[in-house]
């Protein structure tokens, strides 16, 4: 059972919930950047949320299904076609051998997830199927999909047809179409080094996403001002996590994502909260983001609420 990649798209990679436990070896966590959309896609085909999906970035692939497969797409809003006819996202698709599913125009957001009922038949590396693009391992031969690849699937029968509950996409992608996200953050270890005006700017500015952003980091810019520190701190390299907002000497913040370096030497002015990490995945060049300050307690209750909401909406 397999899928043939007719056109790979710009960056289509195999991702699951990531590769914990190897940070001390310098190996970043990897995994689906938008875990919630990844979870929805898996639910639509009856998979557990830990199963690997194909993460699609802005320009999606065209895939030919060599046998009957049950498939679903969730996440960023794309126009899809099935054998050249329009086809919906956010619902279970029961495909026949020879069917071709194609990602057309991206309407909003940046990343979508393709789940196939069953498991993608690849070998886990360090406990995960996620692609580590930096070091070239995991996923499909350690790289993004290319035209002509064949992905083997251990297919499962799934006969139900599910639709993503409307309220869920509203909850999760509330502002996808505005091309602007508000993400919540807690203060980073060097937050207090920011000048008072820069503390204000951090929460008042709209930051536009630079085209140099990738799965390692989002590079942000404000046309209003740069962020400044009260003193130049000579930082010793320290561990960083997904969501760390770093401030390099340019004064333009960088947000570390799942493929980011495991250690860094720039001041950590903020930490995007776990509940909002997947929103960062849906930003692309020229979209904007702003930061809203919360406490760690608020961050955890936001995550608790969001996860509960998802789990109950996706319980049947």
């Amino acid at each position: 059972m397999s899928i043939r990649v007719l056109k790979a798209g710009v960056l289509s990679t195999i991702q699951d919930l990531g590769r914990p436990n190897y940070l001390e070896y310098g190996v970043s966590r990897n995994g689906a950047l938008d875990e919630y959309s990844h979870q929805i896609a898996n639910w639509l085909v009856g998979n557990p949320k830990s199963n690997a999906t194909i993460e699609v970035t802005q320009v999606g692939p065209s895939l030919e299904f060599m046998e009957n497969h049950t498939v679903a797409v969730a996440g960023a809003s794309f126009e899809l076609t099935l054998n050249d006819s329009p086809c919906p996202m956010n619902t279970t698709l029961h495909l026949k051998a020879g069917d071709v599913l194609t990602f057309e125009k991206l309407l909003s957001g940046a990343r979508a997830y393709i789940a196939i009922a069953g498991e993608i038949n690849l070998e886990a590396v360090m406990g995960s199927l996620s692609t580590n693009l930096l070091a070239g391992f995991g996923g499909y031969q350690g790289r993004a999909l290319e035209d002509g690849d064949e992905i083997a699937i251990n297919s499962e029968h799934f006969t139900e047809t599910r639709v993503t509950p409307k309220e869920l996409s509203v909850e999760h992608h509330h502002s996808l179409e505005q091309h602007h996200f508000v993400v919540r953050f807690t203060q980073g270890r060097e937050y207090e080094l920011l000048t008072e005006p820069s503390k204000q700017s951090l929460v008042e500015n709209d930051y536009s996403v630079s085209s140099y952003s990738n799965r390692m980091a989002l590079k942000l810019e404000s046309d209003k001002d740069t962020l400044n520190q009260t003193q130049e701190l000579s930082m010793t390299t320290a561990p960083i996590v997904s969501g760390t907002v770093q401030l390099p000497p340019s004064g333009h913040p960088i947000v570390i994502l799942a493929d980011g370096q495991t250690t860094g030497g720039y001041p950590r002015v903020g930490q995007v909260i776990s509940a909002d990490l997947s929103l960062l995945a849906q930003l692309k060049a020229n979209d904007t983001v702003s930061f809203y300050p919360v406490t760690v307690d608020e961050a955890l209750s936001a995550l608790f609420k969001k996860n509960n909401y998802f789990d109950s909406a996706l319980s049947h």
Binding site: P20, E24, T236, T237, V241, T263, L300
Partner: peptide
């Protein structure tokens, strides 16, 4: 997991 560095040690938890 825990991640040691020059003069710091990070401990990562499941947030919930």
């Amino acid at each position: 997991e825990t991640v040691p560095a020059y003069n710091s040690l990070l401990a990562i938890f499941k947030p919930l």
